[in-house]
Amino acid sequence: MGSERVDGRTLRFQHRRPELLAAATEYVLDHGIAGLSLRPVAQALGVTHATLLRHFSSKDELITCVLDKIRTDLFAQVTADSGLQEAGSTAQLLRTTWRRLCEPKEQRQFLLLFEMAAGAGRRSGDGGEPTRSMEDDFVGFISGWLRRDGWAPEDASALATLLLAQIRGLQLDLLVSGDRARVDRAFEFALALVEPRTGPSVS
């Protein structure tokens, strides 16, 4: 009978984990990870510290799960966006994506990404697995569009890396300066890399 009680409790916790993870993700996006503690998170989510620990055994596990959710949700959102699916070129795709990413709610993800990359880089010279995974996802996504436009595979990967670096850098500039008009204009200069003739001819 004891094992039945444990099984039932475990099932109930499993059903609640996605809800807790979604709420914890919003909390982390709003507050960042500097000085993050499980007790304030639990309080904000309306659960006990013990309940949170049943789902996430430590602060590090919670952060890892949150970052993975942000990465997968963002990539799923981008790849499923009807406006992006209907883009006629890489430049059009990136222009539409840029407008989405400049919305205040989406900018929270960049703030957290910068915080994670800076913290991990200071400790080990490594941006960490979540930031590497996000980098790989989006380089592959942009590279696929560039190949569709006619770029050779090796050039498409390098150019996708450059374009993604431009997006990250300009997002940081926008977060610091708030000068949307200037940053938008700078982004249009970056798009000139792919807009003319939609890529070089491939012999």
Score class of each variant (00 low, 15 high):
Met1Gly: 14
Gly2Val: 04
Arg9Cys: 06
Arg12Phe: 03
Phe13Asp: 09
Gln14His: 13
Ala24Ile: 10
Thr25Asp: 00
Thr25Glu: 00
Glu26Ala: 12
Glu26Thr: 06
Tyr27Glu: 05
Val28Ser: 03
Asp30Val: 06
Asp30Ala: 15
Asp30Gln: 13
Leu36Gly: 05
Ser37Phe: 04
Leu38Asp: 09
Arg39Asp: 12
Pro40Lys: 01
Ala42Leu: 03
Ala44Asp: 08
Ala44Cys: 02
Leu45Arg: 03
Gly46Phe: 01
Val47Glu: 03
Thr48Phe: 02
Thr48Arg: 02
His49Tyr: 15
His49Met: 06
His49Glu: 12
Ala50Pro: 07
Arg54Thr: 15
Arg54Cys: 07
His55Pro: 06
Ser57Pro: 04
Ser58Thr: 13
Glu61Ala: 11
Leu62Cys: 08
Thr64Cys: 03
Cys65Gly: 03
Cys65Phe: 08
Cys65Asn: 12
Cys65Glu: 15
Asp68Gln: 09
Lys69Tyr: 05
Thr72Tyr: 11
Asp73Trp: 02
Phe75His: 12
Phe75Gln: 02
Thr79Tyr: 02
Leu84Pro: 10
Glu86His: 12
Ser89Met: 06
Thr90Gln: 00
Ala91Trp: 09
Ala91Arg: 01
Gln92Ser: 07
Gln92Leu: 04
Leu94Arg: 05
Arg95Asn: 10
Thr97Gln: 10
Trp98Pro: 05
Arg99Cys: 09
Arg100His: 14
Arg100Tyr: 13
Arg100Met: 13
Leu101Lys: 01
Glu103Thr: 09
Glu106Lys: 06
Gln107Glu: 08
Gln109Val: 10
Phe110Ile: 05
Leu112Arg: 00
Leu113Ser: 10
Leu113Asp: 04
Leu113Gly: 06
Met116His: 14
Ala117Phe: 02
Ala118Phe: 11
Gly119Ser: 11
Ala120Pro: 07
Gly121Trp: 10
Arg123Val: 11
Ser124Asp: 14
Glu129His: 02
Glu129Ala: 09
Pro130Leu: 00
Thr131Leu: 14
Arg132Lys: 14
Ser133Cys: 09
Glu135Ser: 14
Glu135Val: 11
Phe138Ile: 01
Phe138Leu: 08
Phe141Ile: 04
Ile142Asp: 00
Ile142Asn: 00
Ile142Glu: 01
Ile142Leu: 06
Ser143Ala: 15
Leu146Asp: 00
Arg148Trp: 08
Arg148Tyr: 07
Asp149Asn: 07
Gly150Asn: 04
Ala152Lys: 10
Glu154Gly: 05
Glu154Ala: 15
Asp155His: 15
Asp155Val: 08
Ala156Tyr: 01
Ala158Ile: 11
Ala160His: 05
Thr161Val: 02
Leu162Phe: 13
Leu162Ala: 13
Leu163Val: 00
Leu164Glu: 02
Ala165Trp: 07
Gln166Asp: 15
Arg168Ser: 09
Arg168Gly: 08
Gln171Phe: 06
Asp173Ile: 02
Leu175Cys: 04
Val176Asp: 11
Ser177Trp: 03
Arg180His: 14
Arg180Leu: 14
Ala181Gln: 12
Arg182Phe: 12
Arg182Val: 14
Arg182Asp: 10
Val183Leu: 01
Asp184Asn: 11
Phe187Trp: 15
Phe187Ser: 02
Ala192Glu: 14
Leu193Arg: 06
Val194Pro: 01
Glu195Leu: 09
Arg197Ser: 12
Arg197Lys: 08
Arg197Ile: 01
Thr198Trp: 11
Gly199Asp: 05
Gly199Asn: 03
Pro200Val: 00
Pro200Ser: 01
Ser203Gly: 12
Ser203Lys: 09
